[in-house]
Amino acid sequence: MSFLLRRIAFYVLTAWAAITINFFIPRLLPGDPVTALLGRMQGRIDSNAEHALRVLFGLDQDATLWQQYLDYWGLLLRGDLGLSFTHFPTPVSEIVNQSLPWTVGLVGVATVIAFVVGSLIGTFLGWRRGTWADGLLPVATFFQAVPYFWLGLITIAVLSVNLGWFPSSGSYDRGLVPAFTGEFIGSVVYYGFLPALTVVLSSVAGWVLGMRNMMVTVSSEDYVTVAHAKGLAERQVMLGYAARNAVLPQVSSFALSLGFVVGGTLIMEMVFSYQGIGYTLYQAVSTHDYPLMQGCFLVITLSVLVANMVADLAYALLDPRTRTEDR
């Protein structure tokens, strides 16, 4: 149990750190982008909302830093992330709430698919080392080195612009009304296929290479030799003994590299104008909508933390050594 408790403590600490970083960034950086905007909004913004923005961006010169920090937490705990400048006067939290499910759906599903498929391919490559399978390694290396968004551009150019098989942007047919109907869900899957494919293509290589190297390492472990000595079927040795153990570090590195992978896949939303949180962040950046940027960062970070906890939980389920402390 203590493994999970330690992890939870770590995530609480990390969440606190992320929130605090979010508090300090606008205060520490030179320049003061918000004041000018507030000046332009003079009169159109109600005093409550203006106060929130002042707290969020450290314009409350009268209060002490500590008081500002407390106020900031107060706002967050009430779910108040300020007002968006570009979608004035929509609260940031509302915009974020609308876009988050799309990201969880797209990036989440695609990342899990990439992990599973990549680990399976890596298992095979590692097991069959020194055969033709090694020839797939340079291909994987290439895909690992390609920037995510560029791969997105290429798939759009080929599958959407040239062949016209898939739409190049959007997340569902705008002619449809969002509802739980077969037609709407079909449209979501159709529109999501290309971005998902790109996410899978660009992140699968990392899992392939990681799993392959772990398989090579694990294959020379004694318990794998024992499994062979026992005369188990090859499939059972490969999947049940070698891959079963090789996947452990793979899962923990899944947790650790989630932040990196999610960062990269969010860019994909920008390329495909997919209405998730990455696209919202992109729009916020290009329109200098600072409250929205801050809100997006917080939500992205907290979501990644939750995903991390799920991965840790999976690890605890897979490795009995984390569960039992007694001998």
Binding site: D222, Y223, T225, D319, R321
Partner: peptide, 16 residues
Amino acid sequence: AIVFQGAMSSLNPVFR
């Protein structure tokens, strides 16, 4: 049948 050198490493750590 074979009994290998290291008993710790001969048993798969994740299985009963």
